[in-house]
């Protein structure tokens, strides 16, 4: 009789422990700093000191000195530093990078092939002095299966991200934040900001899948900051 009671207890422990253990060990959906806080302009930076107007009795504003430059059409050719590949060794992510723009509806183009990722070519490239270099890829697709960034949600603060550039240089980043954000309210103006501290923003899909829309509800966003000593 006692044996049966012990079996009851063992089964109940297992029934509770299995989901609890999964829940405790699954990758967290948010970690580190808020992804929109990196590179945000400091509030004091926006007010330049007002020029004191020394024009004694004149009611008209004083005029500063100005510099001029030739207005000839520039050829606009500049050496490119496009990224060509990205790797996150900690979670076995390795993918080729395509420069991408926007779709007709204004959303970012994501390479059709799920094992490639896209770099938003209108924003700064990785390795720039300022702004967010945005790289995004499919988490998966119905036809092709898991994508290059399928395991991105397992990334943790401190993980290394290497981006190889077309000129052979590698820019090294370290993850500082991870967040799952509802797509409908994705703060794209902040995530794609071309000013502020240099950073890498990785975006894929996450959260629950909505079969009616063939789409996930959320975006998983990871932000990383450059670390010194590019290899």
């Amino acid at each position: 009789m006692r044996r049966w009671w012990m079996l009851v207890a063992a089964c109940l422990v297992l029934a509770v422990a299995a989901p609890l253990g999964w829940w405790l060990t699954r990758p967290s959906s948010a970690e580190g700093v808020a992804v929109t806080s990196v590179g945000a302009p400091s509030p004091s930076a926006s007010s330049p000191s007002a020029p004191a107007s020394p024009s004694a009795s004149s009611a008209r504003p004083a005029v500063p000195q100005v510099t001029a430059r030739p207005a000839t059409p520039a050829d606009g050719s500049r050496p490119t530093t496009n990224p060509v590949s990205i790797s996150i060794p900690g979670i076995d992510v390795r993918a080729a990078v395509d420069p991408v723009g926007v779709e007709k509806d204004g959303s970012m183009v994501i390479p059709r092939s799920v094992d490639r990722v896209g770099w938003y070519r209108y924003g700064p490239p990785p390795g720039s002095d300022a702004g967010a270099a945005v790289v995004a890829g499919h988490v998966d697709s119905k036809a092709q299966g898991p994508g290059a960034l399928f395991r991105l949600r397992e990334v943790g603060v401190g993980d290394r991200v290497d981006v190889r550039l077309a000129d052979g240089r590698t820019v090294r980043y370290e993850v500082v934040g991870k967040e799952t954000l509802v797509k409908k309210r994705l703060p794209t103006e902040r995530l794609f900001a071309r000013d502020g501290a240099p950073r890498l923003v990785l975006i894929t899909c996450g959260g629950p899948f909505v079969p009616e829309l063939s789409s996930y509800r959320d975006n998983l966003v990871v932000v990383a900051e450059p670390v010194g000593g590019a290899a």
């Binding site: 509806d105 204004g106 998966d140 994508g147 996930y216």
Partner: peptide, 17 residues
């Protein structure tokens, strides 16, 4: 410039939530 409207990056539903 303005930012893209969104990042549509998954259609498979393979991710276990």
């Amino acid at each position: 410039h303005s930012a893209p409207g969104g990042v549509p990056s998954g259609t498979g539903g393979l991710l276990e939530d």
